[in-house]
Design a protein around this nucleic acid. Structure first.
Length: 553
RNA sequence: UGGGGUGUCGCCAAGCGGCAAGGCACCGGGUUUUGAUCCCGGCAUUCGCAGGUUCGAAUCCUGCCACCCCAGCCA
C-alpha cells in the first residue's frame, strides 16, 4: 500500500504546529465509548487519528470514554480493541479508560468548587430543563447557584458518598445561564448513578459527564490534537473553559471534522443495535452490517477500508458518500490480490458425450491472471461437469456470449465445447445438456477457425465439491434510510440475503482457510466465512459482485 | 426570530487573487480464455445567489438564500 499521507486540513494544521514548534510530537487518540460495535464511520476516525500520528512519527492512544456505565459493556470493549487491531493500527502503550481518571476528575471537581466555579444544584431534570431556557431565550439562574463553597464541598462529598438519590442533585459549572451557547448554561459535570461500572465496579456512584471528562482525559494523556466530529463544535468553548480553569498538565486543542455518511446505509450505533436486537440481522458482525466486524466477515480487507478512508478525504462539510466508492475500494484491492477460482451457483449438468466416462484429466490454471507469484491450481476435468444455468440457452441472439444449443463456448481454462442436445424434465425444464469437446482446444483456438464467442466457468463432477454460498445485497432499499421522516426499520431490503445451498466449487476451494478471499470468476469476490466455513462443509460469503456492464439497465 | 457550521461536476474532493486537480459514477472506443481487469477518450466558459473591489475573483468585501448541529443528569 502506498504511504503518501492524506492531504487534509487537519494534516496541514499538525504540520504547521510541528513546524512552528507549538508541539514537539503529535499525540492523538481514538476515544470510543464502549456502547456498541465500531462501524465504517469509526473507521474514518481511526484512520484519521492513527494515520496522523503515523504520518508525523507521533502516537495515538486508544481510550475508552466510559463515563456512562449504563450503556457500556466489556463485550464492546473487547470488540473495539479487536477491530482497531484488525485495521492494522497499534495504540501507544496500554489501553486507556476515562475511568482510570475518575479520582483525578473528582479532585478537579473539588478544585472547581473551591474556586467558586462549580456548585451542587438540587434542581431535578425537569426543573433544570425549565431553567435552561430555549434556543432563543436565556436561561434563569438556579436557586442553588449561590451556595457557599463550604456547603458545596459538603454536598459534593455526600453525593460521592451515596447519600442522595439518583437525579436529586448534580454538580454544575458556574458559567453563564444567558449564553447563546447552550453548553455554557451551567453545564452538568457530575450526576448520581447508582450502578456498577464495568471497569470500576461499585467504587463510584457519581459519574462525570462527557464534557467534564473529555478535555481532561486529553490533558492527562498529553493529547496535542483532540479530533472529534462536527456536532461537538459547540462544546469547544466549554472544553477550553475547563482546561483554563483547572490545573491540568497540558493544553490540548479540539478540532472537528465531518462524520462519514454513506448512502443505503445507516451509521448510528443506536440503530445498528436495534437491527441486532430485533433480529433483522444475525448479529453485530452479520456481513450485511456496516460494522467493522461485519465488513470483515463480508470479506473486506483492512487495506480496502483504509484506502476508502483515504479516498473520501477529511473536511468540515457534511456530505453523503456514495457506497459505490466503498465497493470500488474493495474490488480494487481484491482484483489485485485475490486468487481466482470457479464456482457454479445454479448448477446445470453437462455431459460430454465424446469424453470417456472413466477418464479424468488434471488441468492446471493460474491462480491469478497477472500475479504469477500466486501460483497455479489443479482442475480435474471429466465427462460430467456443471455450468451455471444462466450460461445456457436453447436459442439466443448474438449478444448472448455463452453456450447455445448447436453453438460453442469456451470452458474457462479448459476446452471449447459445442452443445448438441438437451434433456428436459416432465415440466419442460432443461436438466442436462449433452455436448462434445472440440479436439485440440486446450490453450488453442479451434483449428476450423470457428471461435467461441464466450467463456464460462465450470466445475467437474469428478473432484468438484458442493458448498453453501451466501449472496448479499444492500441492507436497505432506500438511499437515505434514516433521513427525515423515514423509518429505517421499514426500509430493510427483504432480499438482502440469499443462501445458495448447492453451489459447486472447484476442488481446492474446500481447503480454503477462514477469511481467505477469492474471486469466483465471472461472479464476484467471495470469502470463506470466518466462523462457519470448514473443509467438510465449505461456506462462502459474497463480498461484492464483479462490475457488470452487460446486465446493466 | 439565538448561537455554531457548511455551500466547487450526479457523489467525494483539491484550490487560499492569475484565469477550475484527482477519485467515484456515467458515456464512447481498444485489448482480453473472467461481458472483470487493463488501456485510450469524453464528462464544471464555471465554483449557492446578487452586488462590489481589482487589469484580473471559486479565492477579498457586502447582502441574501439553502442545508446541518445545539434546549440528555447521552457521547
Amino acid at each position: 500500500m502506498d504511504n503518501k499521507p492524506a492531504n487534509n486540513f487537519l494534516y496541514n494544521i499538525v504540520a504547521e504546529d510541528l513546524a512552528a514548534g507549538r508541539v514537539n510530537q503529535v499525540v492523538t487518540r481514538f476515544p470510543p465509548e464502549p456502547n456498541g460495535y465500531l462501524h465504517v464511520g469509526h473507521a474514518k476516525s481511526i484512520c484519521l487519528n492513527f494515520g496522523l500520528a503515523e504520518a508525523f512519527g507521533g502516537e495515538c492512544n486508544l481510550r475508552f470514554d466510559d463515563t456512562n456505565p449504563e450503556k457500556e459493556s466489556p463485550e464492546y470493549v473487547a470488540s473495539i480493541e479487536e477491530d482497531v487491531r484488525w485495521l492494522g493500527y497499534q495504540w501507544a502503550g496500554e489501553v486507556r479508560y476515562a475511568s482510570n481518571y475518575f479520582q483525578q476528575f473528582y479532585d478537579w471537581a473539588v478544585h472547581l468548587v473551591e474556586q467558586g466555579d462549580a456548585y451542587v444544584c438540587d434542581l431535578n431534570a425537569e426543573q433544570a430543563r425549565e431553567y435552561r431556557g430555549t434556543l432563543t431565550e436565556p436561561g434563569k439562574n438556579s436557586p442553588y447557584r449561590e451556595r457557599d463553597v463550604a456547603e458545596n464541598l459538603d454536598l459534593l462529598a455526600r453525593m460521592k458518598a451515596g447519600e442522595f438519590e439518583e437525579g436529586s442533585r448534580v454538580l454544575r459549572a458556574r458559567i453563564d445561564m444567558a449564553s447563546p451557547n447552550m453548553n455554557l448554561r451551567d453545564p452538568i459535570l457530575y450526576r448520581i448513578r447508582k450502578v456498577a461500572h464495568h471497569q470500576t465496579g461499585s467504587e463510584w456512584c457519581i459519574y462525570p459527564t462527557y464534557d467534564f471528562a473529555h478535555g481532561q482525559e486529553d490533558a492527562i494523556e498529553g493529547i496535542t490534537h483532540s479530533i472529534c466530529t462536527l456536532e461537538f463544535e459547540d462544546h469547544r468553548p466549554l472544553y477550553d473553559w475547563l482546561i483554563e480553569h483547572l490545573p491540568v498538565p497540558s493544553r490540548p486543542r479540539q478540532y472537528e471534522f465531518g462524520r462519514l455518511n454513506l448512502n443505503y446505509t445507516v451509521t448510528s450505533k443506536r440503530k445498528l443495535k436495534q437491527l441486532v436486537d430485533e433480529g433483522v440481522v444475525a448479529g453485530w458482525d452479520d456481513p450485511r452490517m456496516p460494522t467493522i466486524s461485519g465488513m470483515r466477515r463480508r470479506g473486506f480487507t483492512p487495506r480496502a477500508i483504509r484506502k476508502f478512508c483515504e479516498m473520501i478525504g477529511v473536511t468540515r462539510s457534511d456530505g453523503v458518500v456514495d457506497v459505490a466508492m466503498l465497493e470500488h475500494a474493495i474490488r480494487d484491492d481484491l482484483n489485485e490480490n485475490a486468487p481466482r477460482a470457479m464456482c457454479v451457483l445454479r448448477p446445470l449438468k453437462v455431459v460430454l458425450t465424446d469424453y470417456p466416462a472413466d477418464q479424468v484429466e488434471q488441468l492446471a490454471a493460474p491462480a491469478h491472471p497477472s500475479r504469477e507469484d500466486l501460483g497455479e491450481r489443479a482442475l480435474p476435468f471429466g465427462r460430467e461437469l456443471y455450468i451455471d444455468a444462466e450460461d445456457f440457452r436453447e436459442e439466443a441472439n448474438k449478444k448472448f456470449k455463452r453456450l447455445v444449443l448447436g453453438k460453442r463456448v469456451r470452458l474457462r481454462n479448459a476446452y471449447v465445447i459445442e452443445a448438441d442436445e438437451v434433456v428436459k424434465d416432465a415440466d419442460g425444464n432443461v436438466v442436462e445438456v449433452r455436448a462434445h469437446t472440440i479436439p485440440g482446444t486446450l490453450g488453442n483456438d479451434p483449428e476450423d477457425g470457428v471461435k467461441p464467442k464466450g467463456v464460462i466457468q465450470w466445475v467437474s463432477a469428478a473432484g468438484g465439491r458442493q458448498a453453501t454460498v451466501r449472496l448479499y445485497d444492500r441492507l436497505f432499499t432506500h438511499e437515505s434510510p434514516d433521513k427525515g421522516d423515514n423509518d429505517f426499520m421499514t426500509l430493510v431490503n427483504p432480499d438482502s440475503l440469499q443462501v445458495v445451498a448447492g453451489a459447486w466449487i472447484e476442488p481446492g476451494l474446500a481447503a480454503a482457510k477462514p477469511e481467505q478471499n477469492f474471486q469466483f470468476e465471472r461472479e464476484g469476490y467471495f470469502v470463506a466465512d470466518r466462523r462457519e466455513h470448514s473443509e467438510a462443509a465449505p461456506v462462502f460469503n459474497m463480498t461484492i459482485g464483479l462490475r457488470d456492464t452487460w446486465n446493466k439497465g
